[in-house]
Structures are given as C-alpha cells and as structure tokens.
C-alpha cells in the first residue's frame, strides 16, 4: 500500500512527496496556508504560499514574510506533486488545498462553510480520494438557519435597541464574521467599528470587497455622538471600559456557538445570533458526499463523533489529531 500523501508531523500536516506543510503550527521551510485566522496562519515559516485574496490579511497579521500567491484553480507543481487552491467559502480569500501525486488526489478543507455569504468566494466541492475535513460543528445539534433569516433577526434587534435609545454592541470575530455582517446588514443607522475590525475592513476594501462605510471608534465617539449605532467589536472587547462609553447598550454575539443556550448563558450573553463561518452538520455531510472520497479524516472540532458517524454511513473515516483539537470548548472565529 502506498504511504499516505499527507501525514502528521510535530510541525503539522505534511506532504512527504512534495516536501511542504499545510497550515503548520510550528516553523517549517514551506507552508501552504488556507487563510489568515491565527490557528492556520502561524508566524515563523521560511516561505508562505496562499491565495492572492488571502495574502494581504496574512501579511498584515504576520508582518514581513516571504510569500507567494497562487490564484484559485491554478495548478502548481511542487516536485512530483501538483497543488491548487479552491474556494472554501469560510472568509474572503480562504481556500481548500488540492494535492495530487501519481493520480491520487487528497483535499484539505481548511475551514469552510457551504452557504454562500455574499462576500467570501463561495465553497466549491473538489472530487478526491481522501478528504481531510474540519468539523468544528460536527454534531447534529448544529444546523444553521439561512443567512437572510439570521440577518433579519440581527436587524430587528438593532432597530429595537435604537428605538429604545440604546446602542447595539455586536461581538463578532474581527476577520470574516464582522465583514460578512457589514456586507449583509441593511443600512439602519451608523455603524461603528473597533480598531481590530476596522483594520481588516480597510484591507478588504482596498482589495475591492464591497463593504459599506464604517466609522472607527476613537476616544471622542460615544453613545451621544452616534445615537442608535451598531458597534462591531471582537468578543474580547465586550464588558471592558472601552465598551462602557456606549451605555445604555444591549450586547449580543454572532457565532455558531450561540445555537446552544447553555453556551450563550455561560458567556453571560442574553442575545446570541447563530451565524457561523463554519459548515453546520448538514453542510459537513453534503461536502463530504460531494467530494466522492471513500476516505475521510476528521480534524478540528467534534472529530470523534463525526468520524464515527461517517463510519456508520459506510465511509472509511478516522480522526486526525492536530494541536487545535481535543478541545471541545468553544473558541472564537466560529
């Protein structure tokens, strides 16, 4: 039996035939990076390869790096191996990685979602023999409502707060979720942004992604200067002195984890919008089926039950333990 095209090393996922890593977490010679989230784009690699759409955010976050870009769908030979990037629909510029060697094709999903969000390049299934899939929300309790319905809820919440003379403080991951909300929400009032969100806005605007006008929060901006505003901030900014200037305010968070009441309450949030940049249960199963792959390796999330369920469905499935799994507590970016 031929050795696996992709294996796990202490540095991360590795292709021995091509001598490169995918989303490695420790410094390596050559890293293919799926997108700019910090659990995928790590500092310290000698050379980076990513999509042209993902590169500006990665450069912004990692500082000076040696990087090349490869457009979606364009093959590149690395030794005897051919690699290409394909849209993952997770955040703007995010990619799945297709790796082909002697007719055998493996695909690494990176983070992905199957629903088109109007901003990120929509997910495109890639046929393969082995599919390494994330499964952050790999349990059947996670099933998202269509984006327009969730956005309608967010808009109604914002409008009701504005009517009650309150600011709407919405926590969302600063790269991806925040911009997705911006692009989808109707223009109900002024939109203020935390610096972490605004920096990404500026980068994506410069790339040509369509984002509405926003105002960065500066010291003189308060609830009084911008009544009825929506404030987009990373979750860590909630319940800090920074947030206090917007009182009276209502707080909410947009994340897939908000689908579960207990998690919502533990975060001390009454209001939560279940809006995720990861595939839900149905999305994961659809994506797995669409690859036609007989072999599935689950990583990143509820790996054990998800792989077991795929085995029940007759697939050859197992788990791939990465440094970021084994942890079933909710994190950010979800």
């Amino acid at each position: 039996m031929a050795p696996d095209l992709l294996t796990l090393t202490p540095q991360g996922l590795f292709c021995p035939a091509g001598g490169f890593h995918i989303d490695p977490w420790r410094p390596v010679a050559r890293a293919l990076v799926t997108h700019g989230h910090s659990d995928h784009a790590r500092p310290g690699h000698a050379a980076y390869l990513t999509t042209p759409q993902a590169l500006p955010v990665i450069r912004h976050r990692l500082g000076p790096i040696t990087a090349e870009s490869l457009p979606y769908g364009q093959p590149l030979a690395i030794g005897p191996v051919t690699v290409s990037f394909h849209p993952a629909g997770h955040v703007p510029g995010s990619a799945q990685v297709r790796v082909e060697h002697r007719g055998e094709v493996w695909v690494v999903s990176g983070d992905y979602k199957t629903e088109a969000d109007g901003l990120a390049e929509p997910f495109a299934p890639v046929p393969c023999h082995a599919f390494i899939t994330e499964c952050t929300f790999g349990l059947p309790v996670f099933r998202w409502r269509p984006q327009p319905m969730v956005i309608a809820d967010v808009a109604a919440w914002w409008a009701a707060n504005a009517r009650a003379g309150k600011t709407s403080l919405l926590a969302a991951y600063s790269f991806g979720k925040a911009q997705r909300l911006l692009a989808a929400l109707p223009p109900l009032g002024p939109i203020l942004t935390h610096g972490a969100v605004e920096e990404i806005n500026q980068i994506l605007r410069a790339q040509g992604y369509p984002l509405p006008a926003t105002t960065r929060v500066t010291p003189e901006i308060t609830a009084k200067t911008h009544p009825g505003a929506l404030v987009l901030a990373p979750p860590s900014a909630l319940a800090t002195p920074w947030a206090r200037r917007f009182e009276p305010a209502e707080e909410a968070m947009a994340s897939g984890w908000m689908a579960v009441r207990g998690i919502r309450r533990r975060r001390g949030l009454g209001t939560g919008f279940a809006l995720s940049d990861h595939a839900d249960w149905d999305g994961l199963l659809t994506a797995v089926k669409a690859t036609g792959a007989p072999r599935i390796r689950a990583t990143h999330g509820y790996t054990v039950p998800f792989a077991r369920h795929l085995c029940d469905l007759g697939l050859q499935a197992d788990t791939l333990q990465t440094e970021f799994t084994g942890d079933d507590t909710p994190g950010d970016g979800a």
């Binding site: 349990l139 059947p140 309790v141 996670f142 099933r143 689908a259 579960v260 009441r261 207990g262 509820y302 039950p305 077991r308 369920h309 029940d312 079933d328």
Partner: peptide, 21 residues
Amino acid sequence: SPWLFEESHAVVGDLAETIAL
C-alpha cells in the same frame, strides 16, 4: 443513532434543547 444523540446531549446539556435542535 442513540450514541450520536447522547454525544449531542452531553454537549448541549439539556434534553429538551437537544431534542429541539
């Protein structure tokens, strides 16, 4: 499968909510 229901229940924590979801 019953085992998958129980895994889900363990994460959600509440039986009624698990069923609803």
